[in-house]
Design a protein around this nucleic acid. Structure first.
Lengths: 247, 247
DNA sequence: AGCATCAATTTGTCTGACAACTTGATCGCT
DNA sequence: AGCGATCAAGTTGTCAGACAAATTGATGCT
């Protein structure tokens, strides 16, 4: 068990340079159109080869904050990350997965509270329909991953906030693959589907009642349960759950 | 018949290859985890050098749909577009601006609560330093936009959650341009800087005390104030503020 | 002045090599 | 045989140098 001190961050040299470049641009606050140093200069400044610099610049190009013209140079196109947000994709690193899940936690609890305040009849109908489908699937031990997904999306849409809805959909989708074990045959046997459904019902009840703090607490409880079902470290979530439930 | 070359699209070879690769992945519908051909094979298939292949793959990596492991290979990480979040740019639509600000509200209040639980001495030092600089700027009616920015970034980093920190930085930055009126000469005269600073102090005190609910309330109050200073509809925020302050 | 030409500069691409890492097979020991 | 350590391909990451293609500003000519 050699946990080699989790040098968690960029093992890739090009990523390191790209981060540094992005941070530099951000700090300097260059106006769009200003020219970047030449690749040769950047090579010397960072002490790396041109290939690394090119890959780093390529990432900034992909992010849309830098634009290059052959023979001319590289230019700032916009402030770094102006309109795009890139998530550290959770592969095998449990740390990244936990981080992203925590982000989902923050957003989804807030969304549940907002949904309780803003939901209208159509929202409640959509949420209730997804809930009913899951209830039916629970009775016959069937799969309901798509309905589970629809349930959370419907809640996000009940906030009537496009940005929030899209972002919750975005983070939630990062774990859509991990939602299968709950509704699998083994999940039904182990009671995971039943537990999740009970949490779902509580969220819906609070939203339907217009109880924003209650919806927040119910969503928090659901996410803590989801984290446990995902095998994430529960210790990290205890504090959060207590924070929510004590209010 | 020479093509008039109005196809200004891919003057870059690497972009051409990247587009072809992305289209290929999308068409093939590979499940996440499947391995891509090696760079050498791709070189032969596209008839280009390895540098071009690497830049193309780098773009896919930046887009988040491919992930590479040194010594192992390149693997499909997600469907194209998964892993990157694009915000509806709030240029002209005030509705979008309000939506994005609300997203910021949800994330930043959650981050403040987390920061209160996880902050260490170094975090407090960073937050306190930014706060002190703003205090000094307030005394002499100077500009402190960069310190205001640093203050919020330091709080986000105190969560020790990379994803959360980067996302808060991302949404906060959408309003960085709108932070100037607070610290302008007119902002000092109108007391906007003073109000903001008072709110900052409360946030810091709660985080330093390890009071998570208090930090959440203080951050909520600050954001409601920021929304008012931005000229956003305060009615929309009253409900949220009450939700937080009642707990 | 106006214009074509040219040379320097800069990004784009190619080539070859080596380093760091992963993975599966081989070898040696119990 | 079972099992662990070791080794050798194979693959991506990085380096170095060179040339191609495009831009830009200076030069020189009319």
């Amino acid at each position: 068990m050699n946990a080699p001190e989790t040098t968690q961050r960029p093992a890739r040299l090009s990523d390191e340079v790209a981060d540094a470049l992005e941070a530099w641009l951000r700090a300097e606050g260059f106006a769009p159109g200003t020219q970047l140093p030449t690749e040769k200069v950047l090579c010397e400044r960072f002490g790396v080869s041109r290939a690394v610099i090119r890959e780093a610049v390529a990432r900034l190009k992909a992010d849309g904050c830098v634009r290059t013209r052959q023979g001319s140079g590289a230019f700032v196109a916009a402030r770094p990350g102006e309109g795009v947000f890139r998530l550290p994709l959770p592969d095998v690193l449990p740390q990244d997965a936990a981080d992203v899940f925590e982000l989902r936690y923050v957003v989804e609890t807030g969304a549940a509270a907002l949904a309780a305040e803003r939901r209208d009849a159509a929202d409640l109908a959509r949420i209730g329909a997804a809930l009913a489908r899951m209830r039916a699937a629970l009775a016959e031990a069937a799969d309901a991953v798509v309905d589970d997904d629809a349930f959370h999306v419907a809640i996000a849409e009940a906030t009537h906030n496009r940005a929030l809805a899209r972002f919750q959909q975005f983070v939630g989708q990062q774990f859509s693959g991990s939602r299968a074990p709950t509704w699998s045959a083994a999940g039904h046997r182990a009671g995971r589907a039943r537990d999740a459904q009970r949490e779902h019902e509580r969220i819906f009840a609070a939203i339907a009642a217009g109880d924003a703090p209650g919806a927040r607490r119910a969503a928090a409880a659901h996410l803590v349960g989801a984290a446990r079902r995902l095998g994430l470290d529960p210790a990290r979530w205890r504090a959060l759950a207590e924070e929510e439930t004590e209010s």
